[in-house]
Every structure is written in C-alpha cells, then in structure tokens.
Design a protein around this nucleic acid. Structure first.
Length: 570
DNA sequence: ATGGGTCCT
DNA sequence: AGGACCC
C-alpha cells in the first residue's frame, strides 16, 4: 500500500499556528503606550528588525536597513531592541498561557507557537453539536467534500483559535494571527494569509490552492537555502516542479528520507507532531568580530561573552553542565558556516546559587576561562598566526533547579545565602509547569516582583505531600513533571555507602538531629520529626559540599553515591 | 545580515 | 561536531 495516500488523507488532527503580530514592536508599545500612535521601529544594530503597523503603512518592512527606513519614514521613532530580555519573558508567558489549552505547544522562535488542538476539539464536539460556525477567514474557493469529519473538526478548531486569540489579547494586550489546518505546515502557511490580528482556516481541499500561491520551493518551511540550491540545480524551483520531480532523482540528491520528506511537504503533507517545548535546551551568545589575532583579545572577548551569558543563565534559573565554544576562522574564500566548536562538561559547583541569581565567583570564573581556553587550543594552534572572526559561548544540558523554595531546608531557612546547588531557590516559585509562572503583569522592571512566594502555610502543606525528586533537563518527558516537585535535595544522600535507596527519609548515619544554625529554631521545633531529620540532613550535606569545595577546589569530585550524582552522570 | 535557537546525523 | 533548518 502506498503510504503517501494514507498520509494524504489523514486529516485527523487540528493544528493551530499562532503568530504574534510584530512581536517586538508590540512589546515596546506595551512598555511605552505613547508609541502606539506613532510610527515606531525596533532597531538592532543598523537594522530595523520590525515595526508597528503605523510604520508599516509608510512602507517600512521587516529587517530594513536603518538608512532606508529613515529615508522612507523620517519620523519613525526607533527603540533599541538588542536586549531580548523582555521579549523572551513575555514570549514564555504566552507559551505558558497556551499550555492551558493543550499539552502540546511547540515554540518556533519567540513569536510563534503551534498548538495541537485535536483533543480539545474532540472534547468540545462531544458536548456541542449545534451552532458550530467557522470563525475568521476561510481560505480558498473549493467546496469541502472530504467525508472524514475534518470539516467539522477544523471548524471547531477555528472557534478555539478565536478564543485563544481573544484570551491572549485579554491577558497580554497582544494581538496575534492564527492559521488552522490539519497539520503544522499548512497551519503556518494559511495563517500568513490574513494579518495582523486575523485568522484563517484551511479545509484540506484547498491545500493545493494554498501551495500553488507560493513562489518557490524555499517558501515551504522545512526547505531551506541548502535544499533550495540543490533543487535549483535539479531544475526545480516551483512547488509544482517539486511535486512532479521524479522521486529517484530526488532520492539520489537527498537520500530517501529527506526526499520523501520534502516531496511530502510539496504536497502539503506534514506528519510531524507538535512537540512540547519546555525551557530552552541551550543558552548561548556569539559575537562576530574583525580579525582577532592575539590570545589576549580572545580572552577578553570571551570574558565579556561570559559575563553577558551569566546574566541569561541567572534569569533562566537552571544550572548548565556543559559549555561549548564556537569560533569562526578567517578564510580567504570565506565559505560561510566554517564554524568549529568544542564542548566539554563543567561541574555544577562552579556556580554560586543565590536566592535569585546564579553567579560565577572569581575563582570559578578563572577555572571556566581556562576550560574555555583549553577548548580554544583544541581548535587553534596558538603558536602559529591565526585570525578569528567570530567567538561564541553557549551552555547546554541544564539541571533544573528544584523549586528551591520547595526545598524543605530552604523553606525554613532564614535569609542566609548558601553556596550550593542543593540550596537553590527558583524565582519561578511553586509553578506547576516547566514554564508556568504567576499571572502576568507588565512590571518588567524586575523579574523577582512577579514571582512572589506563596504564603508559608500553603507552601508547607504542599511540601509535605511531595516526594523528593529532581530532574536534569535531558531526562525524558519534562512536560509531565511539575517544577514544584523538582527537588535536588535528598536527606540521606550525604552518606556514601552503596545501600542508598532513593526515597528514604530516615536511616541517617548519625543519630542526633539538631536545628541547623541557618534555620529558625522555633519553626524547627514545630515540624514533624521526619522533616526535622530531612532538614538536618540537608544542612549536613550542604556543609559537606562546602568542605569539599574548599578541600578540592579543582580536582574533579569523586563520584559519591548520592542521588544527585546518580542523576548527574550521563 | 546577525544572532539567537532546534533537531538530525 | 557539524549541518540544516527556523525566526
């Protein structure tokens, strides 16, 4: 049986693509409402990356050179948008909001999300059979005569999309556009048909009409420049040509998998699932530069990058476990993308974790720098002349902080900062999904203000119900785990014998339980004995770790048999 | 173009 | 580690 036909007629899903209109510009208008009524552009370097719609009426386009923009619209007010902090923050709030509608929400950049609304639609259809009317635009002129039930499902999908857009407007004062279709590719393509602040629904019968409106194969998301160039060499530039290209030729050029994939795309077939996005899997920065030739300059640039990067890591709240250095060597025939990179693991103990920040203290910074320079020398022979035109650093393999304030110890802790990852407090306190946070507010001045801890009593009752656990981000199914459940601390992990069981509260190796000096003794007295035990064990472990750090500042920690290490190795 | 990211090999 | 893709 031809699998192509199976896929071609599979309209079982309902996918909504949501694209926030001129996202950066909208954020800037929220921050400064005076910008709403005047032409305004967001500037990064010498480029106006986006603009509000008043500016667009004058002819300003996305990613226009500053010079051109000013010529077209001398009155345009420019806002610097190089600091992505606020955009990133609001972007994640929107995604988190969307997760209330579906567990399957996939981010694409800061301003786009796919949402799989299939089950939402099915649920809605069970209770509602009347008054189902398509919301927004419907693409195309074809009669829909598919009998698989997709028309009804997609129509309900358009109602849901409308609700979602309304809710985004209410919650965030952001307008967005949406596309509704039976797969991601088509949802994205059709959503672009009416913007801003509109939505478009595609029934499968109009798929070809939609595809044929594209000028070139590279207008299909998923077919990029590289494939576009190769296709061009095969004499293929239009969608039609790709659809009809001999499959063996395609297979020869791209291999069977890729060939099938892109030919499917050219037919509007896209079975890729909406993948739930969590927090970013990497956080990095890179700077292109002219001709760095001296090691001092390299170190300098890298230090600057690291300082900026630590701000991002601190905002993110997780502890990175690998670092990657990327360089670009000058190349006379500078074929782009001649980047090289090397990565290595780093120890979590490098990072000083405070209640609301993650920092690198001087010695750690020095250690990191030397680690990075080691990576550098793996790519560059520093004894010979060299020139570097780009330097980049990025962190990956993050360790999710347990929700710090859900740590028993940190819950009782007085305001004492302790240098240990077992003592992490997460600013996204008591959230219930990897990205969830407290209700949105436009106070962008300080992230902390948005993450006020819950009252102690609430927290306490939640806490004693929780099991201890924690999560490295590369562990499976992050979306199923609640951040509030994530715990790094574990009472008996101090012990290094091999009989550990992961969740046991008691059987400490020392008998007496005391109130740690950084815990309120009055509170300590009131809590159940098991909890006292755990608090005490937490404290002891912290002390042990501090000792370790002092005694073995550089040497790699021995693998003691702790829960932490059990998960860390990998 | 640049500077973020993701996923696949 | 690199490449291709996305915005």
């Amino acid at each position: 049986m031809d699998t192509k036909n199976i896929h071609a007629t599979d309209h079982s899903r309902v996918i909504i693509h949501i694209d926030i209109d001129c996202f950066y510009a909208q954020v800037e208008m929220i921050k400064n409402p005076e910008l709403r009524n005047i032409p305004m552009g967001v500037q990064q370097k010498n480029v106006v990356v986006t603009s509000n719609y008043i500016a667009r009426e004058t002819g300003i386009k996305k990613c226009m050179l500053l010079e051109d923009a000013l010529r077209i619209c001398p009155k345009i007010v420019l806002v610097n948008g190089e600091d992505l902090h606020d955009y990133r923050q609001i972007s994640y709030k929107v995604t988190t909001h969307l997760q209330k509608y579906s567990s399957q929400v996939e981010r694409l950049g800061l301003d786009e999300n796919f949402l799989d609304a299939t089950s939402l639609v099915e649920t809605k259809l069970k209770s509602k059979h009347e008054n189902i009317t398509a919301k927004g635009h419907i693409f195309g002129n074809n009669e829909n005569n598919c009998d698989c039930g997709c028309q009804l499902r997609l129509t309900v999908g358009s109602e849901i999309a409308q609700e979602i857009r309304d809710s985004i407007r209410h919650e965030f004062q952001l307008t967005c556009s949406a596309g509704i279709a039976h797969n991601k590719l088509l949802a994205k393509l059709v959503g672009a048909k009416h913007k801003p602040n509109q939505q478009t629904l595609l029934y499968p019968n109009s798929t070809c009409e939609l595809l044929y409106q594209l000028q070139n194969v590279v207008d299909i998301p998923g077919i990029g420049r590289a494939m576009g160039d190769m296709l061009k060499n095969l004499g293929v530039s239009t969608i039609r040509e790709l659809q009809h290209l001999n499959f063996d030729k395609l297979k020869f050029a791209f291999g069977e998998e890729k060939a099938k994939l892109i030919q499917n795309l050219s037919n509007g077939i896209d079975n890729s699932p909406v993948k739930s996005s969590g927090k970013p899997t990497s956080i990095g920065l890179e700077d292109s530069c002219r001709n760095i030739t001296a090691i001092g300059e390299v170190k300098d640039k890298l230090n600057q990058l690291m300082n900026r990067l630590m701000v991002l890591v601190s905002e993110d709240g997780r502890i990175p476990r690998t670092i990657k250095l990327t360089i670009r060597k000058f190349d006379s025939i500078s074929k782009m993308s001649n980047r090289e990179s090397r990565q290595t693991n780093i120890t979590t103990s490098l990072f000083t974790v405070k209640s609301n920040s993650i920092e690198l203290q001087q010695k750690s910074a020095q250690r990191l720098t030397s680690t990075i320079m080691t990576l550098f020398t793996k790519m560059v022979d520093v004894h010979k002349p060299y020139h570097i035109t780009l330097l980049g650093l990025s962190f990956t393999k993050f360790l999710e902080r347990m929700n710090g304030k859900s740590s028993i110890t940190s819950f009782f802790r007085k305001n004492v900062e302790v240098q240990s990852i077992t003592n992490i407090e997460n600013k996204n306190d008591l959230t219930t999904s990897p990205m969830e946070c407290t209700p949105f507010s436009y106070d962008l001045s300080g992230s902390e203000s948005e993450f006020e801890p819950s009252p102690k009593k609430t927290k306490f009752s939640k806490l004693i119900a929780k099991r201890r656990c924690f999560e490295a981000d590369d562990c499976p199914s992050p979306s199923k785990l609640k951040v509030a459940d994530l715990r790094l601390s574990s009472a008996k992990n101090v012990s290094s014998d091999s009989s550990d069981s992961k969740n046991s509260f008691s059987d400490d190796n020392s008998n007496s339980i005391c109130c740690p000096p950084n815990v309120d003794a009055a509170v300590f007295k009131e809590i159940p004995k098991e909890l006292q035990q755990e608090v005490w064990n937490d404290y002891k472990r912290e002390m042990n770790e501090k000792q370790e750090q002092k005694l073995q500042p550089v040497i790699k920690k021995p693998k003691t048999n702790t829960l932490l290490n059990y998960f860390l190795k990998n």
